[in-house]
Design a protein around this nucleic acid. Structure first.
Length: 1083
RNA sequence: GGUCGCAUAGCUCAGUUGGUUAGAGCGUCUGUCUUACAAACAGAAGGCCGCCAGUUCGAGUCUGGCUGUGACCA
């Protein structure tokens, strides 16, 4: 075998092993009756744009758990896919179309726009998948789903139909956030508030008598949106406001249009302290006013806006004019009529659409809703059932504090507005028409009208068709509507031919993503397994789909034939087998929007929860503590990091962040494209927000069209070159062919350095497992207890502890603790101590074979334990080790007697499917670890003396240890290690050893060490060193003594604690005695 | 405004049910190209555990308040 290079090359490992796994079908998961399933549904990224660090963190956690479970012998499915993200995607495509071609959606039409969005989706889905794959995502790519594909579409249609039939979906009026630019409602979470410079105008309305004649009284009020007075239906005062009590019940006239409206009292809307105490009420255009209308329905509602933001017929002479322009006309006319009183400047918090970045208008419109409330008879509704599932523990949150976020939100039981006035999405499957003899005739082919307005259908139709009549609130016409289940295009055509029109709205994206956990598995089709991607199957070299899974690991055994084929004995085995899922891994901001709704629809459609665990991982912030986002310019592309540090390093570092905390900071830098120097970032304030730019920024933002783009200057004195850099503020992108500074983070050196350390440990092992001048190659043979040396027992004891910790930590989703445990063991124990200690044995022909066997079993275990974290390097090493030792000595089971520790077994073809280590806990030996620690302390103390006295590495020192006979004999048994690790020759050890003159000294708890340094010793320096140490110990002694003198402590603290303090005190006193003796000698 | 977090070494973070002398990585300083690894090795320096009270024999850890900071929901 060719010798391993000194540096691990992540790119070459990535290039070889990902295709290898794909071809072998290692990521495939199929129903396998004799294995337990493990299912993770990806939190589907949306196709609006590329993935960022948050996705990388999310994906790493999921892949880690999936790979771990797969090695444990679970049939582990990680389901991939993407979300169509209705409004977000439509908005980016529309914006780009407008910028590049000057076209709006109305110019191109529904079909053409949707086609354009499909093309966008195709491009970004491809990009997203390639990003995920470069991270090593072991998804079952054959099962890739998209929320608008036909499998998901069926689930959406069936769910809508079922809910409609069950009376859970209704149509109603609601005041929504209306994006006049995109002409759609946007959800509350798609809106951001921004303070703008506005004005506060004051007007008055004349009070009129019953005949409509002015009484001479005026009511004054102020407003930031004067144009809405055209839609006023009342003036409101506080019921206890003495200025107005006499006016309540009277009327005012709106001067602009002569409408007479009542003066009402409403304590919730009017505030005596604010302004004049009187407010105008415009129910159709203000949420608070709308709430007031609901309390006082007699005042009525008047809508003055068209969907594009222009005034409608209620705008009178200003009909067709944009509301902002109309505002000026209104002010002017009120002035002419003598009802304008003044204006002042004011900062106004204004809601903007996150999608179009334009101000939203409160707008009253017809929307579809899903009922969340409980039934009238008190039976739990959708929300309550989802709350129950968490409260009774069927679904558990990790960390548990997120349970409250979930239950608090659901407890409000607010009906869910599911319609969106968009073109990109699942169209609402409802067809309606005005009731006419012709349309009635159609209805009568399916059923018949009953007197109460219901339309019971004949049984052959009622399974997939639902009919109802209603009166249109807008024009008073009687209408008929049909809801049609999936798979009945013939009926849809028949309805359309008869004049029925499909609702033009689409469903909220979350409606389809709520179904993700069962829709992706093929629900509602219970007869067939869900279809799979033929191209992905074709990539797998084992040819016939039935054998696509190939030979599996030593633990999981060969798989029965794949159930990928569509015919499967008439049931959907995939759904039965993989539902419910095991864990959902996501970030906290969608606990309400998504997690809650998945539970709710899972219970509704499947009568079962969608997953048992929900793990909520932290969010990644930048070095300034702000969330990463495209618009802030601080988003790091994981692919850039993978290119620089390697996928393993990125994964390992990310996993080290992922604990139970809420946020982690990831300071970022710009990498000079010329010399790789890191340039630090700074925050750059814009008018209403801030962006992150290089600290050496040249040029100004925002960039005027055609102006040179801002650049940064390299801080490296030898470079000093300028370059463009990653930022959202270039319009639209950095110039082509100009070097661009990428955004990276030096934090990832943590993972890279670890991978390289591990690589070199394996390199050392491999060199010593092969035949060389030092002796023969590795030979597999069983290892018994009596063949083990101290360091072998120690390393196996530690390995057992760490391996078992890994299961604990991963089981609780504590990825950070798991990475720390495995890193510390690998680096600080295996590399720093074990490898160093066995070097002499590997050169000794009698000791070499056993040392090789123990070395390999530890390395073998590490490769397996690290596979979920750093799969590429592990597969690379696995394949190399497989050549050296296709059979090797591996841990025996717990129950093994007769002193056998390792037994020879073959290993799996690939690391990804190797069995997860089960290291016997009986290997853990606390007493032995304690002994070993004393050895380590002694060596550290000798090294410290060597460093203090600058003794050259090549120079040997003598060591004399004063200790009890027992400890001394232990020291003698490992004396060769003093020489090996500290270049110290143990000259003497025993109770009667005396401190030689001119020696450096150190004191452990139960032993003192002396290193004769005749001539070398600096008495002053040594005295100082010892006195400093003595001071420290005196401090501790004092602390312990005062503690023990405290009656309260000795009587109330647990005996164990008190004893520990006593022991430590004794040991410290001994140490102090030794040190004081040394000090006397030196003085 | 409500809810949930965070504040520990210069930076980024660990710190189990309260219990001996608070840890790691990076950075800094001193040595070392020692035949696995300079992306490394050996050694060292560096802490009012945000502030104020309280509970306790004992508080980085528990309780209350304050300050700063972040997220989610209104």
């Amino acid at each position: 075998m060719s010798e391993l290079p000194k540096l691990y090359d992540p790119q070459s490992a990535q290039n070889s092993w990902f295709p290898y796994w794909e071809q072998r079908g290692d990521f495939n998961a199929d129903p396998t009756p004799d294995k337990e399933s493990h299912t993770i549904m990806i939190p589907l990224p949306n196709v609006t744009g590329a993935l960022h660090m948050g996705h990388a963190l999310n994906g790493t956690c999921q892949d880690l758990i999936t790979r771990w479970r797969r090695m444990q012998g679970f049939e582990a499915l990680w389901m991939p896919g993407t979300d169509h993200a209705g409004i977000a995607t439509q908005a980016v495509v529309e914006r780009r179309m407008l910028e590049e071609e000057g076209l709006t959606r109305h110019d191109v039409g529904r079909e053409a726009l949707v086609n354009r969005i499909w093309r966008w989706k195709d491009a970004y889905e491809k990009r997203i998948i390639s990003q995920q794959k470069s991270l090593g995502a072991s998804c079952d790519w054959r099962r890739l789903r998209f929320t608008l594909d036909e499998v998901c579409a069926k689930a959406v249609r069936r769910t809508f139909f079922k809910m409609f039939r069950d009376g859970l979906i209704y149509r109603g009026k609601r005041l929504v956030n209306w994006d006049v630019h995109l002409q759609t409602a946007v959800a509350d979470d798609e809106v951001f508030e921004e303070e703008i410079d506005g004005y506060f105008w004051t007007f008055n309305y004349p009070v009129v008598d019953a005949q409509g004649n002015p009484t001479g009284e005026l009511i004054h009020y102020s407003t930031t949106r004067p144009e809405t007075m055209l839609g006023d239906t009342a003036v409101c005062v506080h019921p206890t406001d003495e200025r107005y009590t006499s006016l309540i019940g009277k009327h005012v006239k709106i001067p602009l249009n002569g409408r007479v409206i009542p003066i009402i009292a409403d304590a919730l809307l009017a505030d005596k302290e604010k302004g004049t105490g009187a407010v105008k009420v415009t129910p159709a255009h203000d949420p608070n006013d709308y709430a007031c209308y609901l309390r006082n329905p007699e005042i009525g509602v008047i809508n003055i806006l068209n969907s594009d933001g222009t005034l409608n017929e209620n705008g009178g002479e200003w009909e067709g004019i944009d509301r902002l322009e109309a505002r000026h006309h209104v002010i002017e006319r009120m002035g002419e009529l003598g009802h304008y009183e003044g204006v002042e400047d004011r900062k106004i918090p204004l809601k903007h659409s996150d999608r179009s970045k334009t101000p939203v208008e409160p707008y009253l419109s017809d929307q579809w809703f899903v009922r969340m409330t409980d039934d009238e008879d008190g039976k739990p509704g959708l929300a309550q059932k989802a709350i129950d599932a968490v409260e009774d523990g069927r679904v558990r949150f990790f960390p548990s504090r997120y349970t409250k976020t979930y239950t608090d939100w659901l407890a409000e039981k607010r009906d869910w507005c599911i319609s969106r006035q968009l073109w990109w999405g699942h169209r609402i499957p409802v067809w309606s028409a005005v009731e006419t003899p012709e349309t009635r005739a159609i209805v009568e082919t399916f059923g018949e009208f009953s007197d109460d307005g219901n339309v019971p259908l004949k049984s052959e139709f009622s399974e997939f068709l639902y009919c109802a009549t209603f009166t249109d609130g807008n024009d008073g016409t009687n209408r008929i509507l049909f809801c049609v289940d999936e798979g009945h295009e013939d009926i849809e055509q028949k309805l359309q031919a008869a004049g029925f029109e499909q609702d033009s709205d689409v469903l909220d994206t979350w409606f389809s993503s709520a179904l993700w956990p069962h829709a992706t598995l093929g629900w509602p089709d219970r007869q067939h397994n869900p279809p799979m991607d033929e191209n992905e199957i074709a990539k797998q070299t084992n040819l016939a789909p039935d054998e696509s899974s190939g030979v599996k690991s030593e633990s999981s055994g060969a798989k029965p034939e794949s159930s990928g084929a569509n015919s499967n004995g008439g049931n959907n085995a995939v759904l039965d087998y993989f539902y419910p899922g095991s864990v959902l891994i996501t970030s906290r901001d969608i606990i309400t929007l998504w997690v809650a709704r998945m539970v709710l629809t899972g219970l509704y459609n499947m009568d079962d929860i969608p997953f048992r665990h929900v793990h909520v991982h932290p969010k990644i912030l930048d070095g300034f503590g702000q969330t990463m986002s495209k618009s802030k310019g601080n988003g790091v592309d994981p692919v850039d990091l993978i290119g620089k540090y390697g996928a393993d390093a990125v994964r390992f570092t990310i996993a080290s962040f992922a604990g139970e905390t809420q946020d982690v900071r990831l300071p970022i830098s710009y990498e000079c494209p010329h010399c790789e120097e890191m340039i630090s970032p700074k925050q750059y304030r814009l008018e209403t927000s801030s962006v992150v730019v290089p600290s050496t920024l040249k040029g100004e933002f925002p960039v005027p069209q055609g102006a040179p783009k801002p650049t940064m200057v390299c801080t490296n004195k030898k470079c000093k070159k300028q370059s463009q850099f990653t930022t959202p503020l270039y319009d639209p992108d950095p110039d082509p062919d100009v070097p661009v500074a990428k955004m990276v983070s030096e934090r990832f050196e943590y993972g890279r350095n670890f991978c390289n350390k591990f690589w070199n440990a394996a390199r050392f092992a491999i060199m010593n497992l092969e035949a060389s001048d030092n002796g023969p190659a590795y030979s597999p043979a069983e290892v018994t207890d009596d063949q083990l040396q101290l360091e072998d027992r120690w390393v196996l004891s530690r390995l057992s502890t760490v391996a078992n910790q890994m299961d604990e930590y991963l089981g609780r989703y504590q990825f950070d603790a798991a990475t720390r445990a495995i890193r510390d063991f690998t680096w600080n124990e295996f590399c720093d101590w074990y490898l160093e200690m066995i070097k002499p044995r590997l050169r000794n022909e009698n000791q070499r074979a056993v040392a090789q066997r123990v070395l390999l079993v530890v390395l073998d275990s590490l490769v397996r334990l690290l596979q979920p974290f750093t799969p590429f390097i592990c597969e690379e090493l696995w394949q190399r080790l497989k050549e050296i030792a296709p059979e090797r000595a591996l841990p025996v089971g717990e129950e093994s007697a007769d002193g056998k520790v390792l037994e020879v077994r073959p290993v799996a073809d690939a690391c990804i499917v190797a069995s997860w280590p089960k290291i016997p806990t009986t290997w853990q030996d606390a007493a032995l670890e304690k002994r070993f620690e004393r050895l380590q302390e002694t060596i550290a103390a000798v090294r410290n003396v060597r460093a203090v006295y600058s003794i050259p590495p090549g120079t040997s020192v003598k060591l004399r240890m004063r200790a009890s006979a027992e400890v001394a004999s232990d020291m003698e048994s490992v004396s060769s290690q003093f020489d090996n690790l500290a270049k110290a020759v143990l000259e003497a050890a025993g109770a009667d050893v005396e401190r030689p003159k001119g020696a450096a000294s150190f004191s452990l708890g139960d032993a003192d060490g002396f290193i004769p340094l005749e001539g070398l010793i600096d008495t002053e320096e040594e005295l100082k060193r010892q006195q400093k140490r003595a001071e420290e110990i005196r401090k501790h002694i004092k602390g312990a003594e005062s503690k023990l003198a405290n009656e309260n402590f000795t009587s109330r603290a647990p005996e164990q604690v008190v004893n520990d303090v006593r022991e430590t005190l004794e040991s410290n006193k001994k140490q102090l005695e030794s040190i004081e003796e040394i000090i006397r000698d030196l003085s």
